[in-house]
């Protein structure tokens, strides 16, 4: 990829991400639906497992990332629902935007929404489960790496499902198995951060970074043909 092409891709990505953030600012879906949903999942986990905080505290890393995973599904569905109405997919195809730029922009938009949700969830597990991390730097790095991977895979599977009538039910079936490695890695890294033994956590964090790069590379290649078929 030449420098000019890369600049064009980044410019298109900024345009698409900016548009998605403006759409969110207008519709307030993250604020009014995604955040309450994520926090509700935390509450339901607390009801289901035990009011005894020790169980919840031990399970915090896994519960946190499960809540993120469920919220990501909603974020992906929202991100591509706005592109599938009133001929917008055709407009995108014909727009002159680089498909790789659209992919990066959509992924960046999803990632920013998720980071807001994760910040709220961190406060939530601290307040509700009594769990506070000792390795804050590892928590931040893990969140960024895992979010990048979730968003990149989400953008790929979001556009794949966009053209299908059964997209709302099919998306979880397709996407969740693919991001299972991210769930495992992020849970392990968070486990280390919450247990004051961050050494192994950084190795898991590195693995998450590798998955994020892999999913982004797949998105660069696969997004265009998927957009054509959607």
């Amino acid at each position: 990829m030449t420098n000019t092409t890369l600049r064009s891709v980044i410019s298109d990505a900024r345009l698409v991400a900016g548009k998605d953030l403006r759409l969110e600012w207008r519709s307030r879906v993250t604020l009014n639906q995604l955040l309450p949903f994520a926090l509700l999942v935390l509450v339901l986990f607390a009801f289901a497992l035990d009011p005894d905080r020790s169980v919840l505290k031990d399970a915090t890393p896994g519960l946190f990332w499960l809540a993120v995973l469920f919220s990501t599904l909603l974020a992906i569905q929202r991100a591509f629902a706005v592109e599938t109405v009133d001929g917008i997919i055709d407009a995108l195809r014909i727009s002159g935007l680089d498909p790789a730029g659209i992919f990066l922009g959509k992924a960046a938009g999803i990632a920013l929404h998720l980071l807001v949700v994760e910040a709220a969830l961190l406060v939530g597990v601290t307040v509700m489960y009594g769990a506070s991390p000792s390795g804050l730097l590892l928590v931040v790095a893990t969140s960024i790496a895992a979010t990048a991977g979730l968003a990149a895979a989400g953008a790929v599977y979001g556009v794949l499902a966009a053209g299908l009538r059964v997209r709302d039910t099919l998306l979880p079936i397709l996407w969740l198995p693919v991001v299972a490695p991210l769930l495992i890695g992020a849970t392990q890294a968070f486990g280390s951060a919450y247990e004051k033994s961050s050494g192994a956590g950084w190795r898991w964090c590195g693995l998450l970074g590798a998955f994020a790069v892999l999913y982004t590379a797949i998105g660069f290649v696969a997004f265009e043909p998927l957009l054509e078929e959607s």
Binding site: D12, L15, K19, R22, L23, R26, S27, V82, V85, D86, G87, I88, D90, A91, R93, I94, S95, G96, L97
Partner: peptide, 29 residues
């Protein structure tokens, strides 16, 4: 595609963006 303009039955506009935001987005695109 970059050489042609198509106005079909659908308008290809985002409901939640204003007229100006829509036109500016697609123009820049």
């Amino acid at each position: 595609r970059p050489l042609v303009g198509l106005l079909g039955h659908a308008t290809g506009l985002y409901d939640d963006l204003s007229v100006s935001e829509n036109i500016r987005f697609w123009t820049r695109a």
